Amino acid sequence: MSEAKQMLFARNLICVCIDDNENADYQGQMWHQYSDDPVPFSGIYEFLVAADDLFDTWDFPQRSLERRGFGHDMTEDHRDKGFPFANYNSSDELVIDKIQKQSGTRNIQGKRGKLGTFIIQVAYRQHATWQGHVINTETNEKSDFISALELVRIIDAALLK
């Protein structure tokens, strides 16, 4: 339990609230500490893309590989695509720290999904996937994952119990 409490105060936490399971895919909302509004998702793929975009906006955790794409010019850096806090300056301050100063932080620990709730900390984005920790708030079980697919499997296994 003490490890779980320590993780609950990381700067890049997201809270995933699963509200429904339609057509074998989960729907719900993703919350983070820097906004009063949730990010709704209508499938696990949509959640993964939204979370990855959020991490790009925060520039934390940083990608170890540049995003690939097909059909359009991907030479532009993601930091130049209109993210509100993505411009770097000469200071050593991280983008996520600037966001925190401007937006403040909110408590996401009280958010609950109808089917399940998971607090996720992605510690690294290496090898074109995520590595980190997840807490199932219903059972207070902490699990580590080494890929986004493993995270999805952990969530799925918890919800099928």
Rank of each mutant, 00 (worst) to 15 (best):
A4T: 03
D56N: 05
T105K: 15
Q27S: 10
S64A: 14
V134R: 08
Q100I: 04
I155R: 07
D19Q: 07
G110L: 10
Q121R: 12
I108Q: 07
K81I: 02
C15A: 15
P61C: 12
D144F: 00
S35P: 00
D53H: 01
I44N: 11
I154D: 15
G113T: 01
F85R: 09
Y88V: 02
A123H: 09
S2C: 06
A24K: 08
G132Y: 01
V134T: 10
E76V: 00
D36S: 10
G113K: 02
Y26F: 09
A10N: 12
G104Q: 11
N87A: 13
A148I: 03
P40G: 08
W31M: 10
R106Q: 14
E150P: 01
L48F: 01
S35E: 12
Q33N: 12
E3R: 14
L65M: 10
G116T: 04
M7R: 14
A158C: 13
E46Y: 00
P84I: 05
H32A: 08
I108D: 01
L159S: 06
M7V: 04
A86G: 12
N21L: 11
N140L: 07
L159Q: 05
E141M: 08
Q121V: 02
N136E: 14
K81G: 05
A51C: 11
T75R: 15
D80T: 07
S103C: 15
N107L: 07
F41P: 02
R79V: 08
A158R: 09
V134G: 03
Q121P: 01
E141H: 06
T139W: 01
K101W: 00
I146H: 13
V39N: 06
W58A: 06
A10P: 01
R106E: 10
G104A: 13
A10W: 00
Y34K: 05
S103V: 00
F55I: 02
I108G: 03
F83H: 06
A51F: 00
G110T: 03
D53G: 09
E76N: 09
R125Y: 03
H78R: 11
N140T: 04
E3Q: 14
Q126H: 07
G28F: 00
Q27H: 05
G132A: 12
I18C: 06
E22F: 03
W58I: 02
K114G: 04
I14E: 04
R63M: 09
A24C: 05
A157N: 12
G82E: 10
P61K: 11
